[in-house]
Simulated assay, not measured.
Amino acid sequence: MNIPARWKLIAKRIREVGADAYLVKNPSNVRYLHCPTIPQDMLTALVVFRNARAVGIVSALESHRARDVNPDMEYHVIGNLPGVSTSSKNLKQGIKAVLEGADTVLTDSVERIRGVKFKKDSHLDKIRQSKEAEEIRYIKRACAITDKAAEGLVEFLRPGVTEMEVAEEIDRLMMANGAQGTAFSTIVAFGKNSGYPHHYPTKKKLRARDVVVCDFGAMYNGYCADMTRSYFIGTPTRKMKDVYEAVRESQAAGIKSAKLDMPTKAIDKACRDVIKEYGFG
């Protein structure tokens, strides 16, 4: 990925609005402009200037690794000792030092420093909405890894296993297939628990004819997948089949309706209309 090219896009925005710099504090945005292929960036904040010069604000503890992953960036180290360098006081002092001489600064967050006028700006979010070819490859790979885990899980699902054991197996399968980590905490829900969208896995045991809902995703080179899959243990009831078919057709309708520049609420409506037709709306 051409990270300096991203700095140039930010610098262009800075010049367009007549500002002096852009302060980035949102962790995902910091990672996007420093080293997007790692799960969690070591920088505390990052500043891009009008000339596309970028300075990372980093703790003493993480400074060597930060330079290793991106030697093209300048760094301002905050704190004298590891462990105290992430305090808000040290961070504010670091930001102030890096922004010395700047009058107007765009930012993706909230910041207050005497003598500096900060303006909240969402342009970086808009830039990130358009994915580069390499980003798309990473997302597809994350999805493929997640899909393999979903397929491999079938053999593991049997009466007696717990939600926690299934969640552990899903994570193991993703890592075994090349995941860098998980995109979020894996959700596994049996029976009644499957009605809770964000259930946390417990020691509840799987029983025959339970419905199993799993929500999980792999992280690959810093990019994530998110997949939900439902499994039936034994022979599903008529109602179970009807609900499953309603959701399957709803998803297909949403995919078919999706067009460029289409409001997401219109796609949502296409999905919900199918569910209503089945009488579940």
Rank of each mutant, 00 (worst) to 15 (best):
E169M: 15
A167R: 04
G181D: 12
N177V: 05
F184H: 14
G181E: 08
Y196H: 08
F190K: 05
A167N: 03
V188A: 15
Q180T: 13
D171I: 02
H199N: 08
L173I: 10
T186A: 05
G160I: 07
I187G: 06
A176W: 04
V161M: 11
S194I: 14
G181R: 06
A208F: 10
F184Q: 08
P201G: 02
M164L: 02
R158E: 03
V211Y: 03
P159N: 01
P201Q: 03
K203W: 03
G178F: 14
A189G: 06
H198D: 02
P159T: 08
K205R: 13
T202G: 05
V188I: 15
V213D: 09
A183C: 06
F156M: 02
R158I: 01
E163S: 05
R209Y: 04
R209T: 01
L206D: 01
E155N: 06
Y196R: 11
L157Q: 05
T162S: 09
L206K: 00
P197E: 05
E163M: 06
L157A: 01
G160Y: 12
V161T: 12
F190G: 07
T182R: 12
A179W: 03
A167Q: 07
P159C: 08
A183F: 12
G191C: 10
G178K: 09
N177C: 07
L157I: 09
F156V: 10
L206T: 00
V188D: 15
A179N: 03
V166Y: 01
A183T: 12
V154G: 11
Y196C: 06
H198E: 07
G195L: 14
A189K: 04
D171L: 04
